[in-house]
Design a protein around this nucleic acid. Structure first.
Lengths: 267, 267
DNA sequence: AAGTGGTCTAGACCACTAT
DNA sequence: TAGTGGTCTAGACCACTTT
């Protein structure tokens, strides 16, 4: 708590020079030189990252934070505006601001973009094929920002819509974080895996980057998805990040797109 | 200009009741009941849609708009904040706010998500295969929100990276809007087609919705992309919209993803 | 009634761009 | 020097939720 840099207001309404933090004061060399609300945003993000407020919990009110950081309520508001736009927190009028969680209906499809060509979207059933621990190959290690040979959890599963196998996922997870992950716990769990990751392993995914290609089904995929070898599949490679842009999941999904499609909005 | 609804402030700092528009006044039944800044945003959007300010042009300053609409500068600011977030306008400190245009380096890849697996992204070369006018089939008409049998321009082209054919596009455009579109004008033009659409046909695309699938190359596609029949391709179906969420382009793209990938950020 | 986020105003200063 | 957008403050009222 003592290592945080001072809050520096580089530009205000001719009033006091705002300096906060740990009794810090004077001789401000303005090391950051970023807008106040960005500094506040960074401080709030730190609290989210450190687990001071956990997913689903209420964070202090705008007025409380304004008092704590010694800035106006409007400045805190602008900071939270951005955090809200980035889906890190959720505002509820009259109630307060809450840390975003994957245990909500509204977030079910945020990381699952495969929708039925016709009919109402619904979440698929999971079937875990295998879970094992192994040493990270070089390419996996690089993407997860760990050392080659470090322990990783490898996981393979099939997702089905109304009994029709449609998605084959292969995941690589840092072994350090996902210690006790077993097929049993995964099979018991309903809904997005990110909910379980959040609750059981304290790892909240905040964003992901995907690379999409078209490929032909190889024997294993063909068998698990119940299609012929050579059937065209969508190959979706994803790296997911938690707070601080730290990569914590590498995923390769093969999507059968004969009755579903990957939906994307360009805006 | 006389048909615009009055601006109604449903909540302000105990001061005057703000009503603007065309000399309108009194007996306000509050038909809209939306925040002031949303009403201002709608008015600005109307001006964009009507062509009062064209792409690339400077719009009036926040203070001018505040005076015109009889609201505070902060309210105009919040309206423009959202328009800026939606890429309808671009702010430049010290200069002003400009109508967004497709003639900018920063917007080159906004609607082209296919990136090379290795190396620096660069814009592909175009080769127009054919342009013809025909009557809209039922499915095309439905997506373009026109009547079945209405005139549409059909266009087929191949895009290549460093001489390697990679994208086969088929487009359907409303004939009413894209009257004089010819292969010559398209071939002369460098860069994104949306730039030409904007300049030559006064149609600015603001967003698009894509559905992605994996398919096998059929004979025509195989020939034009110089691959074997059956090669897996990314099938990207896009509907593009201009102001007022009006659909004005239907596009089917076939992407060869052996050296490129479709990049998508989930946030 | 009290507390929360949501909206609106007014006024100040800063950073950047043009003249 | 003047004008633009960018930041910050202070204070008011509204809409919603809980006590």
């Amino acid at each position: 708590m003592n290592s945080s840099p001072p809050i520096v207001n580089n530009q205000n309404a001719g009033a006091t020079q705002y300096v906060a933090g740990s009794g810090n004061s004077a001789s401000v060399t303005s090391p950051t030189f970023s807008p106040l609300y960005q500094q506040i945003k960074a401080l709030i993000t730190q609290s989210l990252q450190s687990g001071e407020w956990k997913p689903g919990e209420l964070i202090p009110s705008e007025n409380e934070l304004a008092t704590r950081f010694k800035v106006s309520q409007g400045t805190v508001r602008k900071a939270i505006d951005e955090l809200s736009a980035e889906n890190l927190v959720v505002r509820r009028q009259g109630k307060g601001t809450f840390v975003a969680t994957h245990h909500e209906a509204r977030s079910q499809f945020r990381f699952l973009r495969l929708l039925p060509d016709e009919g109402v979207p619904h979440y698929p059933e999971n079937r875990i094929i295998e879970v094992k621990r192994l040493r990270a190959p070089a390419d996996v290690a690089r993407l997860l920002d760990i050392k080659s040979g470090d322990s990783v959890v490898f996981l393979r599963r099939v997702q089905a819509f109304s009994g029709v196998p449609t998605i084959l996922d292969e995941l690589w997870l840092p072994g350090v974080i996902f210690k006790g992950l077993t097929a049993e716990r995964l099979n018991e769990y309903k809904g997005p895996m990110y909910g379980l990751f959040e609750t059981e392993f304290g790892t909240h995914m905040i964003r992901a980057s995907e690379q999409i290609r078209a490929v032909c089904a190889e024997p294993l995929a063909a068998q698990l998805l119940n299609v012929s070898v050579g059937t065209p599949l969508l190959n979706v490679e994803r790296v997911s990040f938690t707070y601080g842009d730290k990569p914590v999941e590498l995923r390769r999904g093969l999507y059968l797109t004969s009755a579903h499609h990957y939906q994307n909005e360009l805006s």
